[in-house]
Design a protein around this nucleic acid. Sequence first.
RNA 1: GGGGAAUUAACUCAGCUGGUAGAGUAUCUCCUUGACGUGGAGGAAGCCAUGGGUUCGAGUCCCUUAUUCCCCACCA
Length: 882
Amino acid sequence: MLNQLPKNYDPKEFEKKVYQNWLDKNYFHAEVNEEKEPFTIMLPPPNITGALHLGHALDQTIQDILIRYKRMSGYEALWMPGTDHASIATEVKVVEKVKKEKGISKKELGREKFMDEAWAWRDTYGRRIVEQMQQLGSSCDWERERFTMDEGCNKAVTEVFVRLYEKGLIYRGNRIINWCPDCKTSLSDAEVEHEEKMGNFWHVKYPIKDEDLYIEVATTRPETILGDTAVAVHPEDERYSHLIGKIAVLPFLNREIPIVADTYVDPEFGTGAVKITPAHDPNDFEVGQRHNLPQIRVMNDDATINELGGPYVGMTRYECRKQIVKDLDERGLLVSTKERNHSVGHCYRCHTAVEPLTSEQWFVHMEPLAEPAIKAVKDGSIKIVPERFDKTYFHWLDNIRDWCISRQLWWGHRIPAYYCDDCGHITVQRTVPEICPDCGGTKLRQDEDALDTWFSSALWTFSTLGWPEETPELKYFHPTDVLVTGYDIIFFWVIRMVFSSLEHLEEIPFKHVLIHGLVRDAQGRKMSKSLGNGVDPLQVIDEFGADALRYTLIHGNSPGSDLRFSQEKLESARNFANKLWNATRFVLMNLEEEMPTMEEMAGNLALEDEWILSRMERTRLEVTANLDKFELGLALQKVYEFTWNEYCDWYIEMTKTRLYGDQVEPRQTAQVVLTEVLKGILRLLHPFMPFITEEIWQTLPSAEGSIMVASWPQAREKALKPDMETRMEHLMTAIRNIRNIRAEMNVPHSVKAALQVMAHTEESREVITMGTPYLKSLAGIAEVTFLEKFEEVPELAVSTIIPGAELYIPLAELIDIEKEIQRLEKEKEKALSEIKRVEGKLANEGFLKKAPTKLVEEEKAKKDEFQDMLVTLEKRIEELKA
RNA sequence: GGGGAAUUAACUCAGCUGGUAGAGUAUCUCCUUGACGUGGAGGAAGCCAUGGGUUCGAGUCCCUUAUUCCCCACCA
């Protein structure tokens, strides 16, 4: 007795064990190996802020499929895992934790102790993420696991910062930036989410100094009046030309501000006069620069009004807005209030409305970096899949502005800039300076700020391989092959990796970018904490198994599009696993200890053997092609269909006559082919469903080692047997038709019918002869006889047609003649409509001239076929009516 | 304001370089046949959103319209 499997598929029984075995055998590890071609994927490092969600599961499943496929195909496949420190998000979480546990703020705790807390957090969640990935089956090279704040990454970050600074591409400046009053840090443009909101548009009068005149401005943010330093009008706007150069008096503060002319102003919009607040509006900032206006910042870091706000000091920006509107109204300066839609920026982490304000920050000068990045995609060095995301990529780069990289946070890479207290000189260098190179002073302070998280993730493809050292790994594995990520982080990450790698390594970071969509809930809603519709991958794995989860995420999904996640899909995935499981049980219980090899049986193959082997070959060809084009959903679909519809539904059923027969030889061939094809299926399916395929593989005789290191089946076009496929098709049609007739005639299973065949071609006679055992076992036929003359056709019989032959079932006592005539009429209709279609085509001159000859031939053949069928049907109907 | 996507069977979605519409789920009929009822056999179900164009031929390519959904954007 060979190995046996339990009756039901229960992934919990083996998934952990299987994964542990892979770990023990070190199969995930990749090394520089000049004898093999490398294939590299860098895992987009998950944030250490919490647990993995279904989006991660999708992202990682795609990568795991690709990496397993390539590993089996003989590549030295490296999948480098790691986690991201996620500066803001983690810091916020740790701040909350400290507050909750210790009741103190981060300042009270102090920088050093705060960092200890953050590292402890990282240890906990970093480990949890690894565990989750392992449950999903991810075959990462854990020995190479990295963290964006580990020593190697730190070194790379410093190196990049210093190089860019020395090149003049990083600078420090007092500029307008996006400020999150809740996270209390600056944000890059990419980190601001804009939202359309209904707000008010207030028209306000500013008195003109020493004159009985007013200038009317319009604003959505009255609280910024406190920071106004000018009013601007269009230079050619005649309504205001007399006011240019005059002085307006700011309400409440009585500040005297000039009226300036600037083409930025759109005379058509609002009143045509704009209040200018250089310290709180990006456009106004620009105007301010052009006209040398002072910047008056009237808000604190928490967006309350500071002492420059006069009577409004201490109010929040919203309280202040309300109060100012009220005060303006009281003084008769409020002209009107209108409703108006406008977009407000929000922090992508905490969703607080962002406050634009001027601040001393570090920036990357983007223009010179953007250009090569655009070129790399334009010239095809980097291919984005699906292609349409090119537009997103270009659009962002074409409109890029300088990148604000400093964050007022502790958790992150501290900026390697040192200020001299004596002379104010700024030193940027790789190591901590002892003395100021300018004045020799020793009182040096390092910049307090940390770098944007994305600054370090931008280096991920090479900082993880040892850069700036010229390591063998870097040379061998870089550029990486595919970057797999969601469309939501093209801006944050993909673009920045491209220009970073091009700038520092002078090569692309990856050859392909494979974009996937978002995982949504069954109603199509985004999964979110506030909706409470998030699904925990671990719970899914617990209930259905990791393979079913992976199947659900991949099946029927196409690159770049969102997918809905539902219970039904999981069930269908689990059912498929169960089907495969039981097919294996069937095979196992019919095998014997001693089995010949496939090669030894090559001469004994029956029609169905040749057929299934040819079909498997075709499936291999298609699946491999799909995988190479990143069409994972299609690839999986094909494996599924081959497994269920061909192997299980037909081939297994057909082998039963041989397996249960008492002759050794045909039985052995069936046993060998059953095993061979099952193994073929397992190898094709392994990248998608690694656990079940491994578990089953291990039970099969003659399967050596792990399926993980088995070879990917090389598809051979010449192994296809199209004629065998056609013959089998005909036999299957015969069986289906007979089953159909039986169902329609309500012939119970117990009643075996005799089949009489009028064969017109040698081939059809052969098909029926070879197919006789299957007509018996699968179509309820008792025996098959061939008719030689038309006169022998029984009168009371139901009939059906396959190419080249008519099949009759005399069921005199059972058939209802009227019903049978109806059935035949229906078939006749079908034949007629087919003939009409084909004839229409063949009557078309253009078709005959321009369509490929092969197609024309096929159509002609079809026409003949259907016409024969029609003749037979008509004859048959006549006979029955008579 | 700009860009993109979607619109295919009751539902959720596939459909690659144009050549007679597919799957899963649900539904209807039958079946405890020695792998599987997490199953088997059979059936019903679609003017592939709209109007045009290119073509011998369009779900597939081009344009129009409608609806829905994303993304981007410095009109105060």
